[in-house]
Amino acid sequence: MRRSRLLKDHLVAYGLLSPAIAVFVVFFFVPAAYLLYISFFHWGVLSSATTFVGLENFRRLFAQPLFWHSLATTGYYTLVMIPATVLLSLGIALVLREAVTARRGGVWRAAVFLPHVTPVVATSIIWVWIFNPQFGLANFVLTSLHLPALGWLGTTQWALPAVMIDSLWHSLGLYVIVFLAGLANVPRDLVEVAQLDGARRQRIFYRIIWPLLSPTTFFVVILATVNSWQAFSQIYTMTGGPHGGAGGPAFSTTTDALLVYQTAFSYYHFSLAAAMAFVLFAIILTLTLIQKWISNRLVFYR
């Protein structure tokens, strides 16, 4: 009697879960497993001939300097993007929160969020114009401030920062909204009590708001890490993807997502790309686990 009841409960539960599980299986688990499977073969694109090569693809991958270079590039990109994302979006959120009660607070919030809903490829093309060394807005601003004009996308030094600026512009809106939601959850009472306790703005921020915001910050860091490590569209578009030569100049913007794409669809070396994608997956998973481990010590959940 009890057994059959339990069975029925389980059936109902799995029945209700099945649509979600199906989506995950079809679009995540099967492709991921297939990817791992491919990475053990030499896989022709046009011929059906496949040869099992074991870990050969991984060996070749690790022997390739460009792979390590792309990892370093991605690491650089991510290490700049995370703090920049957190600081800028939190800063904007703090300013906007003051403006929320103001008459046109909603307009400002919409303005900040708007870039996030624009198509990346289209706006990245606009950013290419902005970074045009001769006629671009970026250099116009720099020269008006009596700063030297930069080569931007044409130089190995400034191409990636140019992409970072575009990415930040595009993604900040989402993080600002997330931080605004987090700030709205910090009770006004607590800030008032701290004021009465004689705490200045800075101390209120560091001792009250920042700790209570830590779950939000953690969420933003995870999201920014994953998005940075997977950044593709804006890099591909801004560095001349449609005309070939994406990732340049001189591989200075070749992140590993871009390298995976090029290996697969420019050089048609699918199995090597599969191995690379798997390594990328492993890196992101590891980073997330490390962040989770750190967060257990730093994040305060109410």
Partner: peptide
């Protein structure tokens, strides 16, 4: 400003700092 008036206040919903111990709550001021 509030901190220069020499007032102590108790709020309706206590407004204790949730991430601090009782001792830290007391000594914050």
């Amino acid at each position: 400003p509030p901190d220069r008036r020499g007032v102590g206040m108790v709020f309706q919903h206590y407004a204790l700092y949730p991430h601090m111990t009782v001792a830290a709550n007391l000594s914050f001021g």
